[in-house]
């Protein structure tokens, strides 16, 4: 098992945060549409994606920017997509909710909650039947775990022995409803046993812990060819759909989780390891500079030709 380079993790997590902050700013200026940010999920995204191999495939959902950037997406092309520009990964037709990037192995994205769970079994079936080396990582939230497709997907993946790493990013929020209103029990991971699937639950605010758990889980999927459910426990630090004032969020609970902001957790660890604050601040400045260039790139990218919309509907 390779080791996680914590400085590299900090760079990617900081870029994700800078990307989302930039997008929210652009939204407030009327330059981008509403978006579901991944703020608070950076450690889960970077920890899991770092544990994947280049040939592995990813399915994600409406809260996808962290997964895409962790996988190495160009923030300029991602922003161009969200701003509806031609140089976006989907040619400017996807917006922020359905971004997929075949060249990065991010093969399908569904904004229907649970949609990715319905598709990942088929992607894994292709890997298995066509004897391709990679496993399939499917990211979904605790909300999706309330959909019937969660059950159908885990059950079929178990019965057909499909190489799916299920990652439930439990961030305690399901759109505008807290998880405690929609399900009993402490989390999602325990459900896997009912399907004959192995599982683990990990602190989703600690990127090193997530990486270790994901690497172990991915190895299990790779060596057995069977599915695994990894639950990362974190908190959605911003609202559901920007702009969102989070007036419905319990202030004390939010403050408590802000104390475990994945970026701060990692910074503290690096400082304890002896890195100078200046070195860590440089990472932030680097991310901000990259986002400045990304905005310039997206701004300069032309709008797609509306006629092309009809070109892509049918093969």
């Amino acid at each position: 098992m390779h080791l996680l380079d914590l400085m590299d993790a900090l760079r990617r997590m900081t870029l994700i945060r800078a990307y989302e902050d930039t997008l929210v700013t652009l939204l407030s200026q009327g330059r981008a549409g509403g978006t579901c940010t991944s703020v608070g999920g950076e450690a889960s995204a970077v920890g899991v994606v770092s544990a994947l191999a280049p040939e592995d495939l990813i399915l994600t959902n409406h809260r996808s920017a962290g997964h895409l950037l962790a996988r190495g997406a160009d923030p300029g092309r991602l922003l161009a997509e969200v701003m509806g520009r031609r140089d976006g990964y989907c040619g400017g037709f996807a917006g922020s909710l359905h971004v997929s990037a075949r060249e990065l192995g991010v093969v399908l994205t569904s904004t229907i909650v649970g949609g990715e769970l319905g598709l990942c079994t088929g992607v894994a079936l292709s890997q298995k039947v066509l004897d391709k080396p990679g496993i399939v990582a499917c990211f979904f939230g605790d909300g999706a775990a309330a959909e019937g497709r969660f059950h159908e997907s885990l059950n079929l993946a178990a019965v057909w022995e499909l190489p799916v790493l299920y990652i439930c990013e439990n961030n305690e929020w399901q759109a505008y409803v807290h998880r405690r209103e929609t399900m009993l029990g402490d989390g999602i991971a325990a459900r896997a046993a009912a399907y004959g699937v192995d599982s683990a639950s990990v602190d989703g605010c600690d990127v090193a812990a997530v990486f270790d758990a994901a690497a172990t889980a991915a190895d299990a999927v790779r060596s057995t060819g069977r599915p695994f459910l990894l639950e990362t426990r974190g908190y959605r630090l911003r609202g559901h759909l920007e702009p969102d004032d989070q007036a419905y969020v319990d202030a004390a609970e939010l403050a408590r989780w802000r104390g475990q902001d994945p970026l701060d957790v990692l910074r503290r660890r690096l400082e304890e390891a002896g890195l100078a604050p200046a070195e860590l601040d440089a990472v932030t400045r680097e991310a901000e500079a990259r986002m400045e260039a990304a905005v310039a790139f997206a701004d300069a990218s032309p709008l797609p030709d509306p006629a092309r919309l009809l070109d892509t509907v049918y093969a």
């Binding site: 093969v107 079994t121 079929l156």
Partner: peptide, 20 residues
């Protein structure tokens, strides 16, 4: 397959998008 039309169709779609 199991009696589960959603995952049958979804599995078909996922497989179709990736080579089958």
């Amino acid at each position: 397959t199991p009696l589960a039309e959603g995952i049958i169709a979804g599995t078909a779609a996922g497989a179709a998008a990736t080579g089958l």
